[in-house]
């Protein structure tokens, strides 16, 4: 008898677990994700050491040791020093502030704008939708790097103008993805059902369409963080990005570009490695969020 009772209570607990508040459930699924959790830890760590660089960095910013010159990794300078004897780890941490800030700011901005405009274009349609989509098409055919370079040149290359320029192009990708999804969601019965209970268009977009888009938007946003960091690096590499004394991972790459094939090639590897790790972490977190946010626990 006790066996039966146990089985029943065990079943009930199992059931309750699967139905406890959705936020808790999403958290649990995310924590269990094999790649996303470690990635989140690494990304948070990166954010902490970069933005806490004033406290954490082993050497003050820009401290030169001209007599020392460029040296490889050593116990005193973990990542070595650059050609004017600055501690490379400290430089990378400070540069990371700019790279990470640009990446996150661009992702947030372009996701907000892209999702809103994409949802409107998809749900409302008509000439508004056409206009919005033709604008995104326009950005599709213009060479992005050239356009961004021109904008940044015109406005003056500060981190803020770089963010604005990157977001001005970044939203179009997300808008196109979101619009496509909305076009298919719009035909689903539950949208008719929502109209059937008297819901307004705003309510339908906000409470029926957007929650169904979370997965795709989160993935698009993570890709957008990664691409913003990479595009910023490209810009800085080409010399259109952040200007000295500001520095970013891309700018450091650009300065080290000449060392390929010399013994100072570590100056190229380390900023590249930080970019790679950041981009990978953000993508894995996006994957994990997408899986966690799907209530059916399936891949989208």
């Amino acid at each position: 008898m006790s066996g039966v009772g146990q089985a029943v209570s065990g079943e009930l607990i199992g059931e309750q677990q699967s139905s406890t508040g959705s936020a808790v459930q999403i958290m649990r699924r995310f924590l269990r994700h094999r790649l996303a959790m470690p990635s989140l830890v690494v990304l948070v760590l990166l954010l902490v050491v970069c933005f806490g660089a004033a406290v954490i960095a082993p050497y003050p910013r820009g401290l030169q040791d001209l007599l020392l010159g460029p040296t490889g990794p050593s116990p005193e300078h973990w990542l070595g020093t650059d050609e004017i004897g600055r501690d490379y780890l400290s430089e990378i941490l400070y540069a990371g502030q700019v790279s990470l800030a640009i990446g996150l700011a661009v992702a947030v901005l372009s996701t907000l704008v892209g999702t809103a405009l994409g949802a409107i274009a998809g749900y409302v349609g008509g000439w508004i939708g056409e206009l919005l989509m033709r604008i995104t098409d326009l950005f599709l055919i213009v060479p992005a790097i050239a356009l961004i370079a021109i904008i940044v040149q015109g406005l003056g290359p500060s981190p803020v103008t770089i963010v604005l320029a990157l977001a001005a192009l970044g939203w179009t990708y997300i808008a196109r993805v979101v619009r496509g999804q909305v076009l298919s969601l719009r035909e689903r019965d539950f949208i008719d059902a929502a109209r059937g209970i008297g819901a307004s268009s705003v309510r339908i977009i906000a409470s029926h369409l957007l929650p169904n888009l979370v997965g795709i938007v989160v993935v698009a946003m993570s890709l957008s963080v990664a691409s913003a960091i990479i595009v910023e690096s490209t810009l800085s590499f080409l010399g259109f990005g952040v200007q000295p004394p500001d520095t970013s991972w891309g700018a450091m790459l650009s300065q080290a570009a000449g060392y390929v094939g010399t013994d100072r090639v570590y100056l190229l590897y380390f900023p590249g490695l930080f970019i790679l790790v950041t981009v990978l972490c953000v993508n894995f977190i996006g994957d994990g969020l997408r899986d966690a946010l799907d209530p059916q626990g399936k891949q989208l």
Binding site: R188, D189, F190, S207, H208, N212, V214, Q296
Partner: peptide, 13 residues
């Protein structure tokens, strides 16, 4: 509606 599976929003309780 005919099919409640499609007429209910899958991501809302």
């Amino acid at each position: 509606f005919q099919d409640a599976l499609t007429a209910l929003n899958p991501v809302m309780t």
